[in-house]
Design a protein around this nucleic acid. Structure first.
Lengths: 181, 181
DNA sequence: ACTAACCTTTACGTAAACGGAAAGGTCGGG
DNA sequence: CCCGACCTTTCCGTTTACGTAAAGGTTAGT
């Protein structure tokens, strides 16, 4: 229909490759609205604004957005959780600065203890999710193996060997109860 | 304030241990409303209804609810995704029956191929999430180790050794960009 | 200077996942 | 048979995570 309105690259090294919202959105598979919403939630702030108040994003912004999208899509975190993680990350940076600004051992210990507690909390939360997923995965792979076994039997043209189901452990595989439908 | 109205256990083995909605909710850390909502979505159907239309849940129901809650809380799946998984599970059961009902090799192969495709799809989706999480976890543990190192230094009463940060790989650790606040 | 294609803010709409109250029926101990 | 505690359905309210116009300003190519 129309050519993409990529900001014509002036050869002089301007701030270097600042993208407008729609370009970023297209590149990441998001919408402009979504990006503005994330900004509204405090998840990021564009690197700059044009004289006409256009939002301008740099590579770090794009990276940050990609990170957010990953957490949301693949890992299934809520934007609130993601916000906490980013805030935690910021807190870490601040702590690092505070740490380097003092040489009082007690103070330093306090800072580290605090940081350690935060990290432990995070790891525990992540591990809970990961364990669930791991259990589900090898449950699924168990079924996969079972199916492959049947295929092999068919290929061998044998009688189907009625064999034991290896009763998985871990997360309770989807309990069979009467469900509607 | 008042005693729990646990249905007084008649010693005669009645259907055995059917729970009312509030009892199930309390046992699982859910609310009655939530359970009714899940039913509305087709995620489960109570084992029975009393003559006065009270919902009555058996152990399988409770198990199924625990499973759902796990997927929602720990793994962070949406109810829609959970619904799909349960539906997939039901489809597996049906396939198993169809499989056992025929002895035509071609038909059997078709059934298995279908089931295999489904499982593969599932595994891929789960793995994506798991990988993301794994990356985040060892990123966090990397930071944890770093902190422990600092603690050890403090314990040894030494000068803080300014050392290299092991620049983790994997999921892009929370990109540092100016965020508001 | 014109204009298409972008952008801005503001604001209302929506699906998901429940919360909570209303109006009325049910259960079981006293 | 009475009553308090529980249940039913119905329905409206809320938060999250955006979609979708509306009304107007900005950018750049011609």
């Amino acid at each position: 229909m129309s050519h993409l309105d990529t900001p014509t690259e002036s050869p002089d090294a301007v701030p270097r490759s600042l993208l407008r919202i729609q370009e970023v959105a297209a590149a990441l598979g998001l919408t402009a609205r979504t990006i503005r919403y994330y900004e509204e939630l405090g998840l990021l702030t564009p690197a700059a604004r044009s004289s006409g108040d256009y939002r301008l994003y740099d590579d770090d912004d794009v990276e940050r957005l990609r990170f957010i999208k990953g957490l949301r899509d693949e890992a299934g975190f809520s934007l609130t959780e993601i916000s906490q993680m980013l805030e935690d990350e910021a807190a870490r940076a601040r702590n690092r600065d505070r740490f380097r600004a003092t040489s009082d051992a007690a103070e330093r210990r306090a800072i580290i203890d605090d940081a350690l507690a935060r990290v432990d909390r995070q790891v525990a939360s992540l591990r809970a999710k990961a364990d669930r997923l791991a259990a589900m995965i090898d449950d699924a792979e168990g079924r996969r193996g079972h199916l492959l076994g049947h295929l092999a039997e068919l290929d061998a043209g044998r009688e189907p060997t009625p064999h034991e189901h290896p009763r998985r452990s871990g997360a309770p595989a989807a309990p069979r109860t009467r469900s509607p439908r």
